[in-house]
Nucleic acid binder design. Structure first.
Length: 422
RNA sequence: GGAGAGAUGGCUGAGUGGUCGAAAGCGCCCGCCUGCUAAGUGGGUAUACGCCAAAAGCGUAUCGCGGGUUCGAAUCCCGCUCUCUCCGCCA
C-alpha cells in the first residue's frame, strides 16, 4: 500500500512509473473513490458532530421535562440519518481501500525498464560453469535418484510434488539447513522458528491475500493458511507495532517448510526437484530505517551470495526489470544457481526491498525520539531455498561412478565427503 | 473440548447509561526550585482519518473484535477472539 498523501499529490508520477510494471490498475478510479470517500467522511462527521452537541445539551436537561422530551423527538431523525451516513461512509471506505490495495509499489529509479523476464539484466556472475563435472547429468535421471528422493510414494501419500527425502539425501538436506542457519546467524540474523500456519490478517499484511489466494493451501476448518514462505509469519512478527528507532535495523532468519500450490506449472519446470509443492527454505527478513533500505538490499544480496560461494556453486545475479518485478517490490534481485546436468539456471533466492509498501499494509512502524511514528522499510531474501541447491549439488558434483562429492563446508554435518548410492 | 474469571492509554488501575479520550498513580518530556544527586513543585505526555495550500486550529473515530438496544454506550444485550484458573484429552 502506497502512502495516501503521496498518492494524492503525485498521481501522474505514479502513473508513469507503474506503466512499466506488469500490473493493470485504473488510477483515475482510485482517485475518484478517494474523493467520494472523503466527501462521505465529511458529511458523516458534520452530522455526527451535531448529534454529539445535542447530546451534551440533553445531559444538562432534566429527564422527562417537556424540553427533554421534545429534544428526544428531534434527535430521533438525526440519529437515523447518522446511522445511514455511517453505513454509506463505511461502504465508501471499503470500496476505496479495496481499490487502493490493488495499486502496486512503484519501482526504484535504478530498476531497468522492461516488458518481461527476458529483459532482466544479468547483474553479475560467479564461478565458472565450464569447469564443472564432465559427468554432469540432470539429477532426476540419476539411477538412484528415485530411491532417495521418492516422488512416487510422495504422490501416493499426499500428491504430486510432495517428495520423501530418504537416507543420505535427507541427511544432505539437513546439512544444508544447518549450514544456512549457522551462516546467517553468524552474519547477524536472529534465528526464528515461526508458526507455519497463519491467519488471514497475516496473509493480507504481506500481500498473499487477496491477490494470490490460489497459491496457498487453506485449512478451511480453522481458516488458516499454510505459509508459502517464512516471509509471511516472520514479517508479521511486528505487525501493528511501533518499534523504537534504536531497535532498527532488525535482522531475522527462519527455516520453515514452504507450501505452494503452483497452479499452472508444467513441463521441464516441474521435473524432479525443480518445482515441488512442499520444500524447505531458510528465509532472511530485515526491518530497517527508510534511509537505509537500498543499502540494506545490497548487503542482503551480497550475504546471500556468500552462501553459494561457500558451497562452490556457480551462480548469476539478475536485476529484475520493471516488467517482471513483483507487486509489492521496489527493487528485486534473483540468485540463480547453475545446474550443469540440465544446463540451466535455477532460481534459489529472490532478494527484495519492499520499501514501506508491505510495512504500511502490515502497520509496522518505528518512532524516533520525540517524533511521530514512521513506517519502517522491510526487505527479505531466501538464504536459501533447499531443493534447487540440492539439485545443483547433485548435478555439478556428480562423479563418473554415480557418487556425488559433497561441498567441503557440508562435510562435517553430512558426516562424509561423498554421497554414495548403496 | 467443558466450567468459571477477565480484556480500559507506554505500564498499574478507577470508571454500571449523558458533562468520559477517559480519574489516580507510575514511567517519560519540558520548566521551577535546590552546592550536586535525591526530594519537592508547575505543566505536558495516544493513534488514525477529515477540514485547511500548510502550520495552528477545529472535527470525527478508537476503552479486545463485530453486531444490537437507546436521543445518547467504556458502561446494557448478543456473537466472536484472546488471556488466566480448574477439569478432560494429548506430543
Amino acid at each position: 500500500m502506497l502512502d495516501l498523501k503521496f498518492f494524492r499529490e503525485n498521481v501522474e508520477e505514479i502513473r508513469a512509473a507503474l506503466a512499466t510494471k506488469k500490473f493493470e490498475v485504473d488510477l483515475d478510479r482510485v482517485v475518484g473513490l478517494d474523493r467520494a470517500r472523503r466527501e462521505m467522511v465529511t458529511e458523516f462527521e458534520t452530522l455526527r458532530s451535531q448529534q454529539k452537541a445535542a447530546n451534551q445539551e440533553m445531559a444538562k436537561l432534566k429527564k422527562g421535562s417537556p424540553e427533554f422530551i421534545a429534544k428526544v423527538q428531534e434527535m430521533k431523525s438525526i440519529s437515523a440519518q447518522v446511522k445511514e451516513l455511517e453505513a454509506r461512509q463505511d461502504e465508501a471506505e471499503a470500496a476505496f481501500k479495496a481499490a487502493f490495495l490493488e495499486v502496486p509499489n512503484i519501482p526504484h529509479p535504478s530498476v531497468p525498464v522492461g516488458h518481461n523476464e527476458t529483459d532482466n539484466v544479468v547483474h553479475s556472475t560467479w564461478g565458472d560453469i565450464n569447469t564443472l563435472s564432465p559427468h554432469a547429468r540432470p539429477h532426476y535421471d540419476l539411477e538412484w535418484f528415485g530411491k532417495y528422493v521418492d516422488l512416487e510414494r510422495g504422490t501416493k501419500v499426499t500428491g504430486s510434488g510432495f517428495p520423501f527425502f530418504i537416507g543420505p539425501v535427507a541427511r544432505l538436506v539437513r546439512s544444508l539447513l544447518q549450514f544456512f542457519l549457522d551462516e546467517n546467524s553468524a552474519a547477524g540474523f536472529t534465528e526464528v522458528m515461526p508458526p507455519i500456519l497463519v491467519n488471514p490478517a497475516s496473509a493480507m499484511a504481506t500481500g498473499q491475500l487477496p491477490d494470490k489466494e490460489g497459491q496457498m493451501y487453506h485449512a478451511k476448518t480453522d481458516d488458516l493458511y499454510l505459509i508459502p514462505t517464512a516471509e509471511v509469519p516472520v514479517t508479521n512478527l511486528y505487525r501493528d507495532e511501533i518499534l523504537d528507532a534504536a531497535d532498527l535495523p532488525r535482522y531475522a532468519c527462519a527455516y520453515t517448510p514452504c507450501f505452494r500450490r503452483e497452479a499452472g506449472s508444467y513441463g521441464k519446470d516441474v521435473r524432479g526437484l525443480n518445482r515441488v509443492h512442499q520444500f524447505d527454505k531458510v528465509e532472511l527478513v530485515k526491518w530497517v530505517h527508510p534511509e537505509q533500505s537500498f543499502d540494506e538490499l545490497e548487503h542482503l544480496r551480497a550475504h546471500a551470495e556468500t552462501l553459494l560461494q561457500k558451497l562452490g556453486l556457480p551462480y548469476r545475479v539478475l536485476l529484475i526489470c520493471s516488467g517482471d518485478i513483483g507487486f509489492p517490490h521496489a527493487k528485486q534481485y534473483d540468485l540463480e544457481v547453475w545446474a550443469a546436468g540440465q544446463q540451466r539456471w535455477l532460481e534459489v533466492s529472490s532478494i527484495s526491498n519492499f520499501t514501506d509498501f508491505q510495512a504500511r499494509r502490515a502497520n509496522i512502524r518505528f518512532r524516533e525520539a520525540g517524533g511521530k511514528p514512521q513506517v519502517v522499510h522491510t526487505l527479505n531474501g531466501s538464504g536459501l531455498a533447499i531443493p534447487r541447491v540440492l539439485a545443483a549439488i547433485l548435478e555439478n558434483c556428480l562423479q563418473e561412478d554415480g557418487s556425488v562429492t559433497i561441498p567441503e563446508v557440508l562435510r562435517d554435518r553430512f558426516g562424509s565427503d561423498t554421497l554414495k548410492p548403496e
